[in-house]
Nucleic acid binder design. Structure first.
Lengths: 220, 220
DNA sequence: AGCATAAATAATAA
DNA sequence: TTATTATTTATGCT
């Protein structure tokens, strides 16, 4: 099992219907049924602004308390110098099932149902307390607890040669959203790490988007 | 098992040149132990690990104090919910010369010379205190102080063209819970897949979040 | 000294 | 949830 790198995910098949290919499909979904998606409301939807209501409850859950904790949680996480990804991974390791970065993100934003929040809160609470305990014992203990390698450093910034940049830009002009296979090919051709090339395309798209409001990628 | 974790950079200053290399303990010693390059060493290079030396000084500058402040500064900045960019911009506006995001970044990482740090510290200290004062007066005051537009909404992530988004939001305002037929119509009008539009509405409702506390769709 | 942009983190469409 | 965009941070450079 190849260890999947955090955050920056390995390439994946390019989104269908994007890029150079045409196909402005307009398929009519067969589903005649109620659209709905009638999910229960999230905590942030139910809870009101700062002044806090005397008793905001939903199914016997103290929403205000949860809101308070979520806010606090983020601050304490940052104090520990941890990312959402790290928390998720650590939690997955020590506690039960899987906790993704997204899950942590959603909890912090309270973009979840009260029920989920209520369930997640004690888990986070417990874990956080333990993590803080480790930190007091020393940074090493914390890192160990979290599961990160102590000496992990930021990747050195790559500098592309002018030739490589030229080639990359040429590729980009042809296709701004290459598939995984294409990225691999380009990386080999230019003799750069695949991940580096992948990120280059990400950032290049980003830059373009910032520059021109025109969204070149989307095909309606 | 998934090792690898993103960097755990914050809070803890980088080991900077320590580790494998010979102990950089030579600061009192007159021996010309070369730190590394010919450049003046940065604070993080001069300061040692957590336990802190009784008196780490350089040119009469209390390095330990600076290290402490830098660490604290980051935490307080995050508590205020500000980015390095915002601090830089605000500083540029209120204080003298230009302070770039890079500058703030380098200060926090102590990737600067003691002299620069010593000069910057009081500026940051003063500004931070003032910002915190504003925050106590209300979030609006802080944003005003920082120079951000109060009503500015977070830019939306788009796979949709700006035009499409505009249309979608207009529809949403009229009706957050369109029927199947309506969704079909909207999808055709915007020439997006029906499913895409349907999911957009789902996500839109789900993420109603901060902006509005009014529950557009009634929940029994 | 600080811009440009690579790398990393957070948020969100699917 | 995962895969990808949006945002922020960090750093190589002249």
């Amino acid at each position: 099992a190849t260890p999947v790198s955090p955050q920056v995910q390995p390439i994946q098949p390019a989104p269908a219907g994007v890029g150079t290919s045409p196909a402005p499909v307009a398929k009519v979904s067969p589903s005649p049924v109620p659209i709905a998606c009638s999910e229960p409301p999230t905590v942030s939807q139910l809870v009101s602004k700062p002044p806090a209501p005397p008793s905001a409850e939903e199914d016997g859950i103290n929403l205000e308390e949860i809101r308070e904790f979520a806010k606090n949680f983020k601050l304490r996480r940052l104090s520990l110098g941890l990312t959402q990804t790290q928390v998720g991974q650590a939690l997955t390791a020590t506690e039960g099932p899987a906790y993704s970065q997204s899950a942590i993100c959603r909890f912090e934003k309270l973009d979840i149902t009260p029920k989920s929040a209520q369930k997640l809160k004690p888990v986070l609470e417990k874990w956080l307390r333990e993590a803080e305990q480790r930190q007091r014992e020393g940074q090493q203990h914390l890192l160990e607890f979290v599961g990160g390698e102590p000496g992990k450093k930021r990747k050195r910034r790559t500098s592309f040669t002018p030739q490589a940049l030229e080639a990359l830009n040429a590729h980009f002009e042809r296709n701004a959203l290459p598939t995984g296979a294409e990225i691999t090919r380009i990386a080999q051709e230019l003799r750069y790490e695949r991940e580096v090339v992948r990120v280059w395309f990400c950032n290049r798209r980003q830059t373009l988007k910032n520059t021109s409001k025109l969204n070149v990628f989307h095909v309606p």
